[in-house]
Simulated assay, not measured.
Amino acid sequence: MSQRKKSLAQRIRFWLTSIVLTVFGIWIAGILLFSFLPVPFSAVMTERQVGAWLSGDFSYVAHSDWVSRNEISSWMPLAVIASEDQTFPTHWGFDVQAIQSVLDSESGQMRGASTLSQQTAKNVFLWAGRSWVRKGLEAMLTVGIETVWSKKRIITVYLNVAEFGEGIFGVEAASQRYFHKPASRLTMSEAALLAAVLPNPVRFRADRPSGYILQRQQWILRQMRQLGGEGFIRQHKL
């Protein structure tokens, strides 16, 4: 290899290493800062906004209004836990049974069943889509936020960055948009309806719920009662 080619290869390695270290540094700083500061925007919000601009849709605005946990009705964290991650208060970031079922499956394909901690890590720091690289980074970030953040902080951030509709991010923006009131006044039924659309908030509508969404809402309500209602949230200090 000529001296010029060696020099070029060294420069490429240097810049790649610098980029990787910078990204990891930003993630570490984000985990530390967002343990007590509001999250101004998430990676998913940025991806949606840039995607809209690139497609020529300049009317799209990714909107979120940060609120503290005390400004969110206790029915809302209960609804998302009942809907998506019932072991959230006690696990360390991962659903071990779901991971084992993926490993045991013949296809080996990645599936859902991500915990709320994993979804928070993905929404705040990563891009959408499915790949083993992204899942690996998601796992690393999940360990980070589970180590630094409390469960109450994780659920607060999740509820503030979750996508509830076209350009609608966070429970406060969703509550104002769909029910014309602050998130602190959401009822049990309203919280369950918002949680029902989370698997696909672009396809499913909280303001025009399909029969499937209404059925899912009722299932979530039953799960919320079985968990113990608001007593579950008080018990786990969420």
Rank of each mutant, 00 (worst) to 15 (best):
Q3G: 07
K5P: 00
K5Y: 01
K6S: 07
K6W: 02
K6T: 09
L8V: 09
L8H: 05
L8C: 04
I12K: 09
L16E: 09
T17N: 14
S18C: 14
V20I: 15
F24Y: 11
F24G: 11
I26P: 01
W27H: 15
I28Y: 10
A29I: 09
G30A: 12
I31A: 12
L32R: 07
L32G: 03
L33Y: 11
F36W: 14
P40K: 03
V44L: 14
Q49I: 05
Q49G: 07
W53G: 03
W53Y: 13
S55I: 12
D57N: 15
Y60E: 05
V61F: 14
V61W: 10
H63L: 15
D65F: 14
D65R: 15
D65Y: 15
W66I: 12
V67M: 06
V67E: 03
S68L: 10
N70V: 05
A79N: 04
I81E: 05
A82Y: 00
A82W: 01
S83Y: 01
T87A: 15
T87E: 14
F88N: 11
P89S: 07
H91V: 11
H91W: 09
V96E: 07
Q97G: 05
Q97L: 15
A98D: 06
A98W: 03
I99F: 05
Q100S: 11
D104V: 05
E106V: 13
S107R: 11
M110T: 05
S114A: 09
T120H: 14
T120D: 13
K122F: 11
K122C: 10
V124W: 08
L126D: 02
G129R: 08
W132D: 02
R134P: 02
R134G: 02
G136K: 13
L141Y: 07
L141W: 12
V143S: 11
G144P: 12
E146N: 13
S150Q: 05
I155Q: 04
I155S: 04
T156E: 13
T156A: 08
V157E: 04
V157I: 13
N160K: 13
V161F: 09
V161D: 00
E166Q: 14
E166C: 14
I168Q: 05
F169Q: 04
G170D: 07
V171F: 10
V171P: 02
Q176M: 15
Y178I: 06
F179C: 00
P182H: 10
R185Q: 11
A192C: 01
L193P: 01
L193W: 00
A195E: 00
A195T: 00
N200H: 12
P201S: 11
V202L: 15
R203Q: 13
R205T: 01
R205Y: 08
A206M: 08
S210L: 02
S210G: 06
S210A: 03
G211Q: 06
Y212H: 08
I213Y: 02
I213V: 12
L214D: 01
Q215K: 13
I220H: 07
R222P: 00
M224A: 04
Q226D: 10
L227H: 08
L227P: 03
G228A: 01
G229S: 00
I233A: 01
H236W: 03
